[in-house]
Each structure stands twice: as structure tokens, then as C-alpha cells.
Design a protein around this nucleic acid. Sequence first.
DNA 1: ACTTGTGAATTAATTCACAGCT
DNA 2: AGCTGTGAATTAATTCACAAGT
Lengths: 255, 255
Amino acid sequence: MATGRTHRPATRSRGIPEATVARLPLYLRALTALSERSVPTVSSEELAAAAGVNSAKLRKDFSYLGSYGTRGVGYDVEYLVYQISRELGLTQDWPVVIVGIGNLGAALANYGGFASRGFRVAALIDADPGMAGKPVAGIPVQHTDELEKIIQDDGVSIGVIATPAGAAQQVCDRLVAAGVTSILNFAPTVLNVPEGVDVRKVDLSIELQILAFHEQRKAGEEAAADPGVAPPAVARKQHSTDQGPDGDVPAVMPA
Amino acid sequence: MATGRTHRPATRSRGIPEATVARLPLYLRALTALSERSVPTVSSEELAAAAGVNSAKLRKDFSYLGSYGTRGVGYDVEYLVYQISRELGLTQDWPVVIVGIGNLGAALANYGGFASRGFRVAALIDADPGMAGKPVAGIPVQHTDELEKIIQDDGVSIGVIATPAGAAQQVCDRLVAAGVTSILNFAPTVLNVPEGVDVRKVDLSIELQILAFHEQRKAGEEAAADPGVAPPAVARKQHSTDQGPDGDVPAVMPA
DNA sequence: ACTTGTGAATTAATTCACAGCT
DNA sequence: AGCTGTGAATTAATTCACAAGT
């Protein structure tokens, strides 16, 4: 794809790498903090440190968006905030429904950073009729029967699934049938969706298992003490920071 | 690293790719489901479908662990469950502390899949003295003052941070100072940790922003309808399944 | 003098495609 | 005949290192 890309307007080649897209929110958060402290400009070095990446990566990432910096100076904070927000589609408002209002669903509903960016909780939905009408985070919970109507009326395209694993696929199917095309899944299940629907998962159990793997590795190394040529510094994985490749996450689920 | 790997026992070359490690829990979950249904063997094709990956990737992943399959037949489910569990370090028990018992912390404490694999909630910790002693998920909440003592007494090496963003770094520092070397961070902040400490993050806001990016892209394409040579099939990104590269996740946080 | 933007080099991950074993 | 295991090819991501601009 790098080789034979069909010629383009030259000013902006569509197709930002996924790895870059996944970091843009990180940069945006760091920039927003700077903006709140009224910092006018920032260098790639400083911003990279704040976002927990290295500066070459950050510059390369930004190069996919365009040339928004000034050589010898750095980046204008406000301008970059705007450009990244626009690139991520945060200049518009995204109504979101949360399905499954247990502990986790309630935590998500209460999450402040939600509204701060372009997301708005359009509805909270739960299968328990006893929950209906009860306000969570100031929003009354609605019954699952209303799901299709809510999605169509509010033009919801993003759904969050925080149900038990057993209900997730069924909820997913209804969301998709009603018009949702992006799903954030907290249930520990693989969701099957048709072409054109994006799913991202958040899975606590998976994350813990990945940590356990590295933890075990560390414990084993104490004793190992390889008596060979022993490459001193660089040999070890670049632990800490940096979440490595892949894009997994753990699913949380009440009860 | 692929080129100049120091000669090894040949039977097992240390160094499983990060991307593979991140998928092992996925395979394990699928295998556990098969095991519960008493399925004795499974082919790479079937297992891959259940885990939501393609079979070549799965086979390559397994090849890093060793040769645990039988050509012409497939994999023995029980045997694979054991091998992967061992590789992930799940044959031992990992005490975990959860710091910050808001909505999210409570959701995590109640999460069933916790104990089912090798993880055990050693303690729930919160800074609010009013919470102290109150049971959540059957475990009494303890005050932050006890943090160091708990970690040392129980030999805790994995900590989960579910505090507000403002408290996260401070909690992290205390966890690390007390001996924790793996952290799962739900607070929307970059954590600074010393070499040798692993951090993974779970960030709701980041996940939603990534979805918004793709959602915006989809909306834009409706109108685009490129009248050029129009590469029909393969051209579009492989949406759905597959979380793409990187390894980000969103942070959740109560209020 | 300083910092961006980016080709080129490197490293990692994925996918192909088939030899090798059951 | 069927399915694994894996070299080889491909594609993606990261890092280097420096030319180009202010």
C-alpha cells in the first residue's frame, strides 16, 4: 500500500495509519491540558513527553495530518487542538447510547470526560424493567424495548455495550439493525458484526492476563541471570510506557 | 532482534511477540468455552473463528509456544488450555489491589471473571475515610493509609488504578514504591513509572475518539463516490473485527 | 541556533503458500 | 485427505538522521 498508492491531491494523502489514529486522542489530551494553562506553543519534544511517546513518532504522526508546525519554534497549541479535533471528528456532536446499566454502565454514564469531548449520552438502556425511569447520572434509564426507537430518533451511530457477556451479541445485533455502525464493547465476548461496522473492545481480564505474562517473565529473570555474553542495557524490552502493538483491551462486566 | 538472536535451546526461543501475547487471552477464552462444552479437539480454522482472528495468524502465534497440535487433526483443547495458561502465568495466583472504589472500582471488584482466572482481589482501597470498612463485593474497603502494608503483607505485584485522574500518579508512585511492578490504569492520565514497571491503560475516552474518527470517515465516503478507477473489493479497510495495531484503550473514571 | 518534516533504514506484524506429518 | 507448522513475502509501524525552513 505504501508503494502503489493511487496518485492523490498531494496536499493530503488520505489514509492515516491506524497506529497514528490511536495516538491522536493522547496528543489531544496533552494539548488540552496545555491550552488550559494558556501555554501558547509547544515543541515536539515537550508534547511527546507529556503524551508519553517519543518525539520522532509524534512528528511522523503529525506529518500525516499536514504541516501544522513552525520550524525553529514548535506547534501552536490552540491551532493543533483544533486540527486534531477536526481530524478525529470531534467538532461535531456524537450521540451515544449505553446499554446495560449495572455498576459499569453507571460508571460510564457518570464519566465526566464524556461530554467534554464531542460525545453526548443520548440514552441509558437496560433490560431490567425495574430500572426503567430510575435516573442514573441525571438521565432516566429506558427499557430495551425502546432501543430501536431511540437510535432512530436521535440518529445514534455509536453504541456502548456494558451488559453481561451472554446478552452482548444479541444487543449488538439490535444496535446494528437499528443503524449503529460503531460499537464499544465492554463485555468479554467476541462480537460478530457485518462489514462496515467497527467494534472496539475493552477487556479487563485480557489486560490483567497480559500483565501477568510480563510479571511472570520478570520473576523468572531474577533467577536466570544468564551467564553468557549478557547484553547489558538495551536487551530488555522497553517496559513501562508504551502499550506495545495490538490494540486489545479488557472487558469489564458487572456480576 | 529476529536476525541476531543469540543461539538458544532450539526447542523454545524466548521472546514471544507482543502482538501474540495480547491474543493469547483471547484464544484461552475461546478454548475455555470449548472445554466447558467438552469439545475434545479443535482445528486452527474453528478456533480462529471463535476468537475472531484468521487461522494463519493463530497458527503462527501458537508456533511461538511450541508444537502443540497434531497435523491432520487439530489441537487438543484441554492440553492447549493448560499450555496457554502456563505461558501466561495463570497457573499461579496473582493477588491484585484495586485503588479507588467509585462506580468503576466497584464494577471491577464485582467482575466475576476476576477470580475465575488466576487473579484474586487482595484488597480494595479508597482515600475516603467514610468508605473504610464498608463491604464492596463482599470485601471491606480499606483506607489508603494501609496501602503499603497490604502490598507487602500479601505480596501484591499487580495494582489497578480506578481513581480520578488527579490522584492517579500519586497512587501509582506509592504502589511502585511499595513493590508493585504491573499497573492497570483506568484513569485518563499518562503515568510515569521507573524502568521495569509495566503499565497498561484502559481509556474510554480514547476508544470513543477512535470510533468517532472512523465514523466520520464513513459519513464522508457516502458523498465521495470516487468516479475514478474505483478499486472495488479489497480497497476498503478491513473494518469490523480486529482492533488494528497499537494497544490503546480508554480510561474510565467515576465523576 | 533551533525545530520541524520526511525520505531511508530498521524492526515488527501479518499473510501467503506449501512442505511435512498424521 | 487433511491440517499443522513455518520459511518467505508482504505490509505496517517505528526509528534514524538530516535537509529545509524560520
